[in-house]
Every structure is written in C-alpha cells, then in structure tokens.
C-alpha cells in the first residue's frame, strides 16, 4: 500500500488538477472563471514537475539541513533543477494572471458583460 501511494499519489493529484482545469476552460462562459481554470492547470503542472524530482528517501537539497547530501559519491538529495525552474515559473504565473485580469476588466468596461457569447454577439 505504502509503495503504491509513493509511486502514484502525486501523479494522480497533478493529473486530476490538470483535468479539472481543462474542464473549466472548456465549459464555462465567464472570462474570470476561465482564468481560474488556467490557474488550477498551472498548479497541477508545477506539482507534476516537482513530483518527478522526488524519491522516497530524498532529503532537501540544502547543506544546512544535513551534511550528507552525498554519501560515498552517491547523491541522495532531491533533484534541484526542476525546483529552480518551478520557483521562477510561479512568479511569472502571477504576472500573467494579473495581465489577463486587467484585460478582462477592460473588456467589461467596453462591452458591459463578461460572457464570451454576449461579447461575440456584440461584435457582429
């Protein structure tokens, strides 16, 4: 049971988050709801990238926590490279979310609605 959970639970979580976000993006009409879906997809992707860097006996990749990141030349820490990529990706995600919200506010000021179908009708 424990081995099964260690192998699969994080991957199940990330795939479920990506699927739920995709469902929101495909079905909802409100622009803000679509942005909420994109944020959930982003969380799932970050979780997936961290999960493939981990193994059950890993320690934090920080020499302050322990001296023994490497025992006899074998490294036992978690992989720090995906962690550094995700660290910057989260901050960029906030910037792009704020930009999308600003565009949504401008669309509301012009058309008076946030429904994508009504905006499409008003375009005609």
């Amino acid at each position: 049971m424990q081995v099964f959970l260690q192998n699969w639970i994080y991957l199940i979580a990330s795939v479920s988050l990506i699927g739920v976000g995709l469902y929101i993006v495909l079905t909802k009409e409100n622009i803000f709801r679509i942005i909420v879906g994109l944020n959930i997809i982003e969380s799932g992707t970050n979780l997936f990238m961290i999960a493939i860097a981990w193994h059950p006996k890993a320690v934090m990749p920080i020499y302050t926590a322990t001296d023994h990141l490497a025992v006899n030349g074998k490294v036992i820490a978690a992989d720090p490279l995906p962690q550094s990529l995700v660290l910057t990706a989260i901050v960029i995600g906030l910037g792009t979310t704020a930009l999308a919200l600003a565009i949504g506010v401008k669309i509301f000021e012009k058309y008076g609605t946030l429904d994508v179908r009504k905006i499409k009708e008003a375009e005609k």
Partner: peptide, 30 residues
Amino acid sequence: FLQAPDVAITEAAIGAGLSTAIFVIALKKV
C-alpha cells in the same frame, strides 16, 4: 512533503496570498 521548501514558501506567498487578493480586487471592479 516533496522536499522542496523554497517552492513551498513561494507558492504559499504568491498562489495563496497575492493571487487570490488580486482576483478579489478585480472582481470588485466588475
């Protein structure tokens, strides 16, 4: 739990704090 404390701090400050606040502020405008 996945041994990535740097990412955990960043996600807690940005994803749970600032992102939600910006969403609520933009919702107040519309």
